[in-house]
Amino acid sequence: MLKFLLVFCACVYTVTAGKHDAYRSYSVHNVQVRDMSDLQLLQDLQLNLGVDIWEHGMGGVRDAVVMVSPEQARSFLEALDENGIAHSLHIADVAKSLEEHENDLASYRSSRQNRMIFNDYPRYAEVDAYMERIAATYPNLVTLVNAGPSFEGRDIKYLKISTTNFTDASKPIYFMDAMMHAREWVTTPVALYSIHRLLENRRPEDQDLLDDIDWIILPIVNPDGYEFSQTDNRLWRKTRSVNLNVSTECIGVDANRNFDIEFNTTGVFTNPCSNLFPGPYAFSEVETQYVRDILLEYLPRIQLYNDIHSHGNYVLFCYANKTLPPNAAHIHHIGAAMGAIMDSMKLPQARFYLVGNSGLVLYPTSGSADDYAQVRLRI
């Protein structure tokens, strides 16, 4: 029996190792950005060398985190040195780090027989089954809606949670979605935990969140990309759409650059192989069309749109072109309150949340979901 287990473990490791071989000898570096010129240099290196910026950082406040291929590592580090930018090695071999994480995750899963779905990175089918169960368990509160198929044919479902079945027009709607970027696995558990707290573990002090608010929660916007990141390429970010008129080699679109707001103007790359390719036109992706349609259907009532992303501890608001909406002060006040609450509950080793305009705190972009919602909803 022991021999069998050893052979089995060896086989699992071999499969896991091969799965991540595309990132063999890729390295990740912390970059101490000082100001906007350093951030611009990283943007230029992203365009010219194809480096993958995991976290853009903030001048004098937070380091950037950048993944580099072995072929481009020397040029990347020389560019930093020539500009006097301090840096340090964060991960020496991304493939090895991914293998170790996957093995740790497998060990965690095997040690917990009754793990809660939001304490893991569930597959698409698990999330779908959970939503089906929730809808069946709470028929007087929950409506399960199938927005339609993804590009590859997976149903994109969301929950409508309401004590009045969305018939009370005086109640505001909070719309939350996650997993627009396929590799941001931590976002879906946040949406699932929100469902759990609203329905399965509702506390007396939170009853008003159910009584006074109607909820729309969409846990996986981009199921095709998410499944691909689970099975083939952990760091896949885009959708999985194929458009042979655009490219015969590369597929997919950055869903959070695909909305019809200053489309294809800032923070995007025209190369279809880039992680930041916005698509051939706004709403080219069926997945972003579903988000748009939900926003438009409930246009008068949505008071909060929460588009959940990672990596980094941020509470961000519009606009991504560095301009501010009329209610910026109000949004910042709410964001600061959110950040303070999350800071009070975070792990000691986690960084504090930064709150601010996304174009200033992170980097300018165009075609983002939150900007589109801000303009259309005028919230």
Rank of each mutant, 00 (worst) to 15 (best):
V31G: 08
Q289P: 05
A350N: 13
N271W: 04
Q230A: 06
I217N: 01
H29R: 14
V145F: 14
F352R: 00
V268N: 10
H181W: 02
H332V: 06
E132M: 05
T188L: 11
V15N: 03
W185F: 10
F151G: 02
S284I: 09
S274I: 12
L377K: 04
A10P: 01
A320V: 02
S229V: 13
L199N: 04
N264A: 15
Q113S: 14
T365G: 08
P223Y: 06
I161V: 06
A329M: 08
A73H: 13
S310N: 13
D128T: 09
N222S: 05
Y226I: 04
F4W: 13
L377N: 02
A147V: 12
D93I: 11
N245F: 11
S284L: 11
V242Y: 13
I161S: 00
D63K: 14
T188E: 12
N114M: 15
A337E: 10
Q40W: 11
N103W: 14
E205S: 12
R109V: 10
I91H: 14
M342F: 12
D104K: 13
N146P: 09
E285W: 06
Y290I: 15
M176F: 11
D212H: 13
V7L: 14
D232W: 10
D63E: 12
E184W: 05
D155S: 15
Y26P: 06
W185T: 01
Y108G: 02
P278C: 10
D93N: 13
S366Q: 05
D224K: 09
S284G: 14
L89S: 09
D293V: 07
E100D: 14
T288L: 00
T323V: 03
A136I: 00
A329C: 03
M179Q: 13
T187A: 12
Y226M: 05
M180D: 06
S194R: 08
E184R: 03
M36T: 13
T239I: 02
K3W: 07
A169E: 12
V94Y: 06
N201P: 06
I173Q: 11
R240W: 07
S274Y: 06
F263P: 07
Q303R: 11
A17Y: 15
D254Q: 11
Y305G: 07
D81I: 08
L324W: 04
Q113W: 05
D232P: 01
Q303C: 07
G359S: 01
D208I: 03
E297Y: 00
E55R: 15
I216R: 03
H87L: 05
G339S: 03
N146R: 09
A22C: 12
L218P: 03
T14P: 04
S69Q: 07
R197C: 14
F228A: 03
H87C: 02
Q230S: 04
L362N: 00
L159Y: 02
R202T: 11
Y290W: 09
S344C: 08
S358Y: 00
A328C: 05
T265Y: 00
H101D: 15
P280L: 04
D177E: 15
N264K: 10
Y281K: 15
S170G: 12
Y353R: 00
I308V: 08
S284C: 14
L316S: 00
P280W: 04
G225N: 02
Q72R: 14
S344T: 09
G50K: 01
E82T: 12
